[in-house]
Nucleic acid binder design. Structure first.
Lengths: 145, 145
DNA sequence: TAGTAAATGCAATCGTGTTGCATTAGTGTT
DNA sequence: AACACTAATGCAACACGATTGCATTTACTA
């Protein structure tokens, strides 16, 4: 679900993470918080023509490092980013929820409300993180069928 | 677990899917069936220098279409391919098992023996497939720690 | 064994990700 | 308010996997 925030809250968020409050970062934040799907770098580029690709790339990277957003790959293997739930901290993500890839609109949905069931790994494997991907039709595309 | 097959069985496999029995395809099959980890295109290239990159790319694609192998992305978003379990058919994969990404050796393991617990999606979402990714240390790298 | 369609090799292109470096813009201080 | 300092940005360039078009070769079939 999209989380509505205003500019002041985004500035606070940047300050909290010791990041300078630049226009590019505020715009990226407001776009990502306004959507309920994950955003790829091409998505950002197509909207923010005036911001350099590399800048967007670095903004996404630093946001991920700081635990503001998390990375998730779509069906094509391209990185998508979504705002983290409150449980995320620097270098310690809690993105162990379900990522839904819509095969029609290509949207990537983070279904935070679902938690993963416990998984027992075979002997020897030691897991540090889990991600569950589902692919299919999102509610909107499902209706259009 | 690696599935041991001989050349005749690979030829049968190709014939079953109406694919011509070429040297390149047989070599790719024998390499993939011999391993218990998924194989990326770079992996294949580094071993089979005499086969063109594009040929390998097309072989992997046609194998995936026919349901012989399935695609899985590693932590970097690069495609890896692993032989399908017997339940796979053309355009209808049953790769709903656990994919384990080793953060040390970068190996991608398909743990077929684990089946996923049932997942209840929110209203409106209609899933056609699930994939569970885990990242951490594989048995070999775990021992080396 | 000759003909045909499929498979391959080569050249080239695209898109995402990545680094280095010069320039610009935030931020804290006087 | 001007300054200094560091972080952030823009630009150029590159790395590399993925992808297409086309000419050539190879595998199958009649």
């Amino acid at each position: 679900m999209a989380q509505v925030k205003n500019t002041y809250q985004f500035e606070d968020l940047l300050e909290k993470h010791q990041l300078k409050k630049t226009g590019a970062r505020l715009r990226v934040l407001s776009m990502m918080y306004a959507k309920n799907t994950a955003t790829s770098q091409p998505d950002l580029e197509s909207v923010m023509h005036d911001i350099d690709r590399v800048t967007l790339y670095r903004i996404l990277n630093v946001f991920e490092e700081k635990g503001i957003i998390h990375k998730v790959f779509d069906l094509n293997g391209t990185a998508n980013y979504a705002v983290c739930s409150s449980g995320c901290h620097e270098h310690h993500h809690h993105d162990e929820h379900l990522h839904f890839n819509c095969t029609a609109c290509k949207g990537v949905f983070c279904l935070n409300e679902l938690s993963l069931p416990a998984i027992n790994l075979p002997e020897g494997f030691q897991a540090s993180g889990f991600t569950l991907y589902a692919s299919g039709l999102c509610p909107k595309c499902n209706k259009m069928q």
